[in-house]
Nucleic acid binder design. Structure first.
Lengths: 211, 211, 211, 211
DNA sequence: CATGAATGAGCTTTCATTCAT
DNA sequence: AATGAATGAAAGCTCATTCAT
């Protein structure tokens, strides 16, 4: 029969929730993070979270949505292009750009929460289905298993490189740069050309002809 | 009342628990798998699990232990070797061999449970610490960030390639083979040599002499 | 900015709340109906409900009040009458009339929410106390348990008949008519007289003389 | 990391849970009774309830099941009989017998929890469907609405009479007896015969001829 | 070698209610 | 006349863990 005090904080609680959730989900994982923890860190009650989000899952969906939008654009763009060697190279670069623009936050988040993300179906399509759509748009029909895997690895290289960089003293920029050069090493198209020349530095410059 | 074990399950309940846990931890993750589930699948009570393991964590430790042993051997071996280009190449091959021998089970398990594994400290050293030990043994002191990352990516390529292969119709052998060729592509040492030659097919055969 | 109410809903939000609450309380019961639901159906916030009512209970009190008023009139009237056979017969008819005038809405509502209603004490007297007051006014002091129960059943027959009619394809008018005839069958006074005559069809018409 | 004491109470906790739940569900209703309350009354934790029942609903199902079994027998029996005037009379008596055997507990319970009971579908059929099955077995195809309702009311008379008896100082036996006589008054078959005779006293004895 | 019975802590979620604006 | 933002309490439920038998 008694109840709370209502309204208090002036600014943007919803944004703060997202921010704290992002941090905790990345640090400890979605499943291991409780709503109590998020609320406590914010000096708010659990019920307040439910004013802004309909469920715990809703928070994670909301966090992932912005990333997904950019990703969906990439897919849409890829579909409009005519398949060919250049497309793949461009797609890889776009993928890395996506990550470097938003900084490493989202990559780390996605890495730490694959499982939940795998279960989400925002916009009637799972992330895996989208991924496969992209792969298919880039991979010709007659690709070998190895070729297909190299393309996949190239596209996912940012994620993996960030994972591998754990414990290494390197800036986000350095990691992203390494991811880019790795991606192009894996790219079956550029690999042959650039291989003989500059294996370590990113093949940003013109590809020198091979003897 | 007659002679015999007096219990219905033949012998190796402990092994069965490990087997079921392996399956479920890989499928749904450690945190999302409850002891109830494991027990139910085995037709045993939860309490029975506590006869064989002291805690839930104990199960995961036990599962990871065998993998860790092989890995520790790899580290020990690497430390005895004199650093140099060949060491790295051999280490990569050993790493892939480890995975292909045990089959993909352990790789998938480790992939699905990085977080718990990260928190384990079996033998007074975390997996990450061991990983870094290995990296340091293989990477010379003056290595650039990019070089370091390529080495790490090369060593972890089996894991990542299995991840990337999700949704692709490929056998374990095919994935492992692709991982091997990817690893060697990333290897700063072999990359220069093999690049001009056989970028796609695995360099299993003898290394062609370099001009 | 122009003249007018300045708000979108014409006027009688309070009435709309009552109407929606009536519907939901009847359909799902008081306890199982949340204020959120009521508010949502109305396109209003929960807080708005508190502008018009002081509590959830206040809503149910308000809904039941109109029914109670009519009922209190019946009690008051009964008390002014001299006890006797005719009084009971008239009281039963008034009881049924009450229901048929307001339609079945209130009967169904009361049926679905006995428990809350039992806990209400509007006007310093619970519904049960009022009921007993009425029963006492109608039942002579020397009545047997069975006689008392038949009178009670007769007075409550509308409610019970509506309950029993669930799943039967019958109009409100038909149910009310059946309730009336059942009530009079149970009435110890009229029973003897009408019994020999028209047991099934309602004794709406004049009672044909017996023998 | 700390945990409970395990095993303590020697006897039949499950039965005690059922007993306490029966009491509370009847007194305050299913929805208004919390598992915490049940547990507290028993000096047990909520989790203990979940050892014995899979859910709150499971408790109510379990409580209602015994009643339902008897009821299903009645339906099964009714279906084997050839329809006719006697069948109805016998069915009514069986219905009342059911209640008087088990005492009033179940009747009061059912009365207080219609809503939950309505939502249960034990054995792939709701209580309402069963009720209708019985009604159809007893009511001829050409029955009028009023006739149908009188039969229904007759069969449900125990329930309703117990409800009506609230606040009246009467023993279970007296209430049951009254319910029986009321049921037979409503029975279209016996009504005609007994009407002329003994409307108030139960028609168990022979009907004395009227002057 | 294993079960039966239980615990305590915690989880996600919902509810009625409040109050400054 | 009504909303936006929040609260405190409680609900149903699950989990890892314990221990006498």
């Amino acid at each position: 029969m008694a109840a709370g005090t209502g309204h208090r904080r002036g600014s943007d609680t919803k944004a703060e929730i997202r921010s704290v959730a992002m941090e905790l989900f990345t640090e400890k994982g979605y499943e291991a993070t409780s709503l109590r923890e998020i609320a406590e860190r914010l000096g708010v009650t659990k019920a307040a979270l439910y004013y802004h989000f309909t469920s715990k899952e809703d928070i994670v969906v909301s966090l992932f949505a912005e990333h997904l939008a950019t990703f969906d654009e990439l897919i849409a763009w890829a579909r409009t292009q005519t398949p060919g060697p250049q497309l793949l190279t461009q797609a890889i670069d776009r993928m890395i750009d996506m990550a470097s623009e938003r900084g490493s936050r989202m990559v780390r988040f996605a890495l730490a929460n694959q499982r939940v993300i795998k279960d989400l179906h925002p916009g009637h399509q799972s992330v895996h289905e989208r991924m496969n759509t992209l792969f298919e748009a880039l991979t010709g029909p007659g690709a070998s298993v190895e070729e297909a895997l190299r393309i996949r690895m190239a596209l996912l290289s940012v994620n993996f490189t960030y994972f591998a960089a754990q414990g290494l003293d390197a800036s986000d920029a350095e990691v992203t740069a390494a991811a880019r050069s790795i991606a192009h090493l894996l790219n079956p198209v550029t690999a042959e050309a650039s291989a003989a020349a500059a294996p370590v530095t990113p093949p940003v410059a013109e590809a020198p002809a091979v003897g």
